Simulated assay, not measured.
Amino acid sequence: MQGMDAHARLFIALTPPPDVRKQLAAARDVIHLRVSGKPVADSNLHLTLAFLGQTPRTRLEELTQLIDRSGFMPLDLQLNQYGFFTQAQVVWLGLPARHIALDGLAQRLGHGLRTAGFNFEDRPFSPHVTLLRKATCPPERLPQPVIWHANQLSLYESVSTPDGVKYRVLHRVLAGFGR
């Protein structure tokens, strides 16, 4: 692949529609007024299901087929709990309790990735949307929940640019339209 790295830094995530992205950005901005940190760009807001990291580009077609076969169906999510990952210095917004359908999707993707021999971050699933990085303290309570009818699953590439990290969608599946 001339002019392109042989590997790509990849992850699979739910992509918010524009109205939800706007709500997430508003929640981020409210908390950023009270907590220090670097806001995540609006275009980078997402909910990660599986982080693969450096993956050979030669496996992209296999990976897109795996995502197409994930059995992705629409999910109704209510994000109303802020959290703080101390070590990573990340403020996030997530669900207050386990979500059976969301957990099931993450498990199916993980099983498919393991079976196909993909390297990925295989740790307990903690569904959240990162709002701030390099934060110094946990946030306060969220004024109102973000309601998200999740109907788009995407394969993203994380690309470092002089202006910071940008996430580029390489493949997308709409809920109920996988193979």
Rank of each mutant, 00 (worst) to 15 (best):
L14P: 05
R69Y: 05
T136Y: 02
R133F: 05
Y156M: 01
K134G: 06
L109M: 07
S158M: 13
F11P: 04
V165G: 03
F85Q: 11
L102A: 12
D122V: 00
H111A: 08
P39M: 00
A97L: 08
K134H: 14
T136S: 15
N80D: 15
Q152I: 06
M73Y: 03
R172I: 02
D42E: 15
G176E: 06
G83S: 07
V173N: 01
L79Q: 06
P143M: 05
Q78C: 15
R168N: 07
R57C: 05
G178C: 01
V165L: 13
F84N: 04
S126Y: 10
H128S: 09
L174H: 13
S158V: 14
F177E: 12
A25N: 11
V169N: 03
V173W: 00
I31H: 05
L142G: 03
I31V: 15
F120C: 00
Y167F: 11
A175D: 08
L75H: 07
Q89K: 15
L102N: 11
R108P: 04
P96Q: 13
K166C: 08
P124R: 14
P162N: 14
D19N: 13
S158D: 13
L66Y: 01
H171P: 10
A116G: 01
Q144G: 02
K38W: 05
L14C: 09
L93H: 05
F118E: 05
Q2D: 08
G94V: 02
R34Y: 04
H46V: 07
L170C: 13
V91M: 03
E157D: 07
K22C: 04
R59G: 06
S160L: 15
Q144V: 00
L153Q: 04
L47S: 04
T161Y: 06
E121N: 10
G178I: 00
N80T: 05
L33Y: 03
A97R: 14
A8Y: 07
R57Q: 03
P39L: 01
N119E: 12
Q2C: 00
D163P: 00
A106H: 10
L155S: 07
L95T: 12
A88W: 02
V91K: 06
N119A: 15
V20A: 03
V20L: 04
R57F: 02
D163Q: 15
A27M: 12
L170P: 13
V90M: 09
Q2P: 06
F125V: 05
L105R: 11
P124H: 11
E140R: 09
A27R: 10
D29M: 11
L60N: 12
L131W: 00
I100D: 15
H149M: 03
L105K: 06
Q107D: 12
M4N: 10
P56I: 06
F118T: 05
L75F: 08
H171V: 11
D103V: 06
G83A: 08
V35Y: 02
V20C: 03
R21C: 10
R57P: 02
D68K: 07
